[in-house]
Design a protein around this nucleic acid. Sequence first.
DNA 1: CAATATAGCGACCGATCGGTCGGACTTTAT
DNA 2: ATAAAGTCCGACCGATCGGTCGCTATATTG
Lengths: 214, 214
Amino acid sequence: MSPRHSAAEARRTRERIIERSVDLASIEGLEGLTIGRLALDLGISKSGLLGHFGTKEALQLAALGRAAAIFSQEVWRPAADATPGLPRLLAVCDAWISYLEREVFPGGCLFVSSTFEYDGRSGPVRVLLQRQFHAWEHRLTAEVRRAVAAGDLPPDTDAAQLVFELYGVMMSLNHTIQLHGAGRSPARAKAAVARLLTTTSGSGRPTSTPGSPS
Amino acid sequence: MSPRHSAAEARRTRERIIERSVDLASIEGLEGLTIGRLALDLGISKSGLLGHFGTKEALQLAALGRAAAIFSQEVWRPAADATPGLPRLLAVCDAWISYLEREVFPGGCLFVSSTFEYDGRSGPVRVLLQRQFHAWEHRLTAEVRRAVAAGDLPPDTDAAQLVFELYGVMMSLNHTIQLHGAGRSPARAKAAVARLLTTTSGSGRPTSTPGSPS
DNA sequence: CAATATAGCGACCGATCGGTCGGACTTTAT
DNA sequence: ATAAAGTCCGACCGATCGGTCGCTATATTG
């Protein structure tokens, strides 16, 4: 049906491969993603699939790149319209929590799981992961600093420290969702973010029960 | 050299296998741990190794059990002598950070990485992981409640929320160490814990730069 | 001492892994 | 029309996977 060997169709095939790879890798891991299984899943041949990338590693890098695009689309873009500084930071965190809650990647955030998969090894995949994390960290830190400059966060705020802790909240959320199911954890994550980013005068006391936990 | 087929020697062999499995699994992952590699590494045969456990899954479960014992030894026991409640909680967090900082498992906390490896699957390994996490969570929560009862934490403290956030700090620390190297992250983790567990009157404001960051 | 149990070994199994190769076929460029 | 480029396939490769099956050698039991 239809031309199956045109250049345009080839690009579509490549896209399909990458898309499926991202989903599969989030479940089985970047290494657990196998060419044969992927090809069978897509109804194409192993060699036809591999012809698009050459090696499995190239496919992994492509999948990671696509995952970054999806993450950016899901977490950063919804907050792009918010005013820079604290409002955008809050919007990012909301989108981030929603992204984890909706399980955009069926097996949990691909970056986090890939990091734990590749933390002991070396090679291009690990390097790309490091760069991606660093970039995201940089984006967040810059936003925190903007919030500080705007006076929405205390002037002595340690931006890197705040980002470190925000990360922790999101990783705890991701972990809980994947292992135990969502449950109350999204609400907990929201509460934690609020406590980290909201400097209501008087009480910054941590972890007290919120009024309405929904 | 020496009797190599005695029952006592067999137990020692089994121990050696499990110990090595824990280390290898923390680097390569529970699934990436392969029988052949492990046997070669220990200088024994594949079949001789597998004879002790029957299946790879049994070996994985044994490794997870051993990892739990090590974790308990490293994180819980140093705090066992502290008085229950907040002091013990602080001691646990200190030991926890130290455990991550010293990289007791060379590839990072085995439980965390295993969770991300198995979160999409099912079977005995995942079930054991769930139980182990639940047990640890329970331990921590009980300690938080004890601290609340003793008046060392505010009476309206949400214990589960606090544990959720402590988890996040430790996971962020683990992640940072494994991906970027330790650097300032242990200090950040300590600051985060202090902010979560210390209720100095007046300022509970988050993430301000500490006086001496070492 | 004889009988039994078992630790460990070497050879081997089917399955699957990532990857290669040559050709069939279609599109595109000339 | 013809040549060049490119997509995709089926067959195949060596390596490795988890696991099985006798077998030997030793330790334990009676």
